[in-house]
Every structure is written in structure tokens, then in C-alpha cells.
Design a protein around this nucleic acid. Structure first.
Lengths: 135, 135
DNA sequence: ATAATTCCCATGAAATTAGTAGGAATAAGG
DNA sequence: CCTTATTCCTACTAATTTCATGGGAATTAT
């Protein structure tokens, strides 16, 4: 189970923002309600997305959140890289490469291969596609 | 971070068993020492592998563990399916499909795609390959 | 002013993961 | 039959991570 609730929430919110188009900033309250995500939890998630530069916020009344880039240019990989502690398949390829076994470990190629297919897969999903009406 | 220590240990032990060839059962003590895996923890892992039919055990003196199939016929996917709670990319595709959003959730295709590439990737690694001397 | 919002920081509860512990059952070899 | 080496079984514990919750300060439109 790689993807946490945080990551799934983040994706859903980003898709919701993409679906809204350019109709001004969307307040957290609305996002939280429409997506059934706990208000205070989402607040933290949005902070991370803002910090990462994927969304921008405007404060005060009539404030809210909006995407910083066109939906075609934001992928699932971009989003999950922000929210997930690590997208690596195993600790072995996650950390600072400090495993003493690295040189001889026969499992390392597995994790490297996994990391690559996962990243490739996630990069194929853009917000534009994800937000478009489906069949 | 998908793969737990348990899964990584399991993989390493299975590779070690494959590398030993058909020289009779290998006692846990030896596996634990050679792979630097806590004895009692490995004990539990071996129990799962036995239960799943990937290894067989012989009890009593001179006992130990051995592979049930030729290393060509056992893949990383086979092993991790046993040890990991779930290999699914997200809870969404893991459980019994009881998510009320399933019908309309725009993120579901992502998890399905991920599940597929992960499984395909893991199936490509057999114990035979993993246990062969590397460069 | 007021009301609606984001921002910041701390705390808490639940679940999962990783590891420990003790002893019963089994089997080989003398 | 005894000793020794092994797997098997079941329970417990500790640490970590995940998933939130709570209170209030700062900001901004009207």
C-alpha cells in the first residue's frame, strides 16, 4: 500500500481545482465539503502544495486556492512527490544511499526497476486528463 | 515506501536459499546470521513462506528450510504477495472494493494502472536470476 | 467593524511495523 | 532414553507513522 490518505486527498483536491477552471480561488471549506475531506487535515495538505508551488493561495475574505500551472502541465507524479514521505519502492532506494549492503545486495535492482516503472506510470496522468469527464 | 522490512528480508532469504542450491535444508540460525536478520523475526517470516507453499521445512535436528520449486519458477511477485499486507498501490484497489466513490472516482484509473505496472515489474525477477552472480 | 478566510503550531488517537520472549513439539544421533 | 538442535505456536512490547483535531493569530474584502 504505497499511497497514503494524504496523497489521495491531495490528488482529488487538485483534480477538483482543475475541474473548476479559472473561476477564481476556491476556499478550503468548499473543497473540504465537496470532497469529504476533514477540514483541518486538508488545511495541512494545502500548505504543502502551496509550499511546493503547485497551488497558490489568497488570504482573507473571498480567498482560497488556485492552480499555478495549466492542468496539462501538472501530473500525478508531481503531486504525490510532494505529499508522500517517499515514493521509493523500498527504504533501500529512498534514503541517502547509506545502506552498507548496497554494493552487493541482490535485491537492489528490483527496487530501482520498481521506482522507474512507478514514476513513468504516474507521469502519464495529467490533471487535464484526470479532470475531464470520463466514460 | 511500499515494501516493508519483512518483505525485504523474505526476498533476501529466498535468494539465499536459491543460491545454496539443493544441499539439503538450511537452518534458520544460519540464514539469520548470514543475512543479519533478527532470528525471531525471521522465524515468523519463514512460517508465512511455508504456509504459502514457497518453502518447506523439516523439523528436529538437521532440519531447516528449502525451496519447494525450482528458482526459475519463483518470482519476486510471488514472494512479496505473501509477505506484504497488500501490494496494491492504494487502499482503493486493495480492499474488497467497498469504496462508495468507486463509480465516479477520477483517481481510480491511476491505482489500477500502478497495480499493473508494479505486478508486471515484480514478475520479471525470478529467484534464479536474483541468485546468479552479478557484475 | 465584521466576517471569511488562510496560516501556524501543538497535541492526540489509532494503526502498522518491527522486534522480543518463552516454551512446546519434533527429530537425529549417541 | 537422553541430549541437542531444530521448527512451531502464541503472546507481548516498543517505536514509528498516519490521520487527524484544536485554538488562535494574521490577513483581506465589504
Amino acid at each position: 500500500m504505497i499511497v497514503s490518505a494524504k496523497g489521495r486527498y491531495a490528488l482529488r483536491v487538485m483534480i477538483a481545482l482543475a475541474a473548476r477552471g479559472k473561476s477564481g480561488p476556491v476556499p478550503l471549506k468548499e473543497l473540504s465539503a465537496k470532497e469529504s475531506i476533514p477540514h483541518k487535515f486538508l488545511e495541512q495538505i494545502m500548505a504543502e502544495l502551496v509550499k511546493a508551488g503547485l497551488v497558490e493561495s489568497s488570504r482573507g475574505k473571498n480567498g482560497g486556492y488556485s492552480l499555478t500551472r495549466p492542468p496539462e502541465e501538472c501530473t500525478a507524479a508531481d503531486i504525490l512527490r510532494v505529499t508522500e514521505t517517499s515514493l521509493a519502492a523500498a527504504e533501500c532506494t529512498a534514503g541517502s544511499g547509506d545502506c552498507p549492503r548496497a554494493g552487493v545486495c541482490p535485491t537492489l535492482p528490483i527496487w530501482r526497476a520498481l521506482d522507474e516503472v512507478i514514476d513513468d506510470c504516474l507521469k502519464r496522468f495529467t490533471l487535464a486528463e484526470l479532470a475531464s469527464p470520463r466514460l
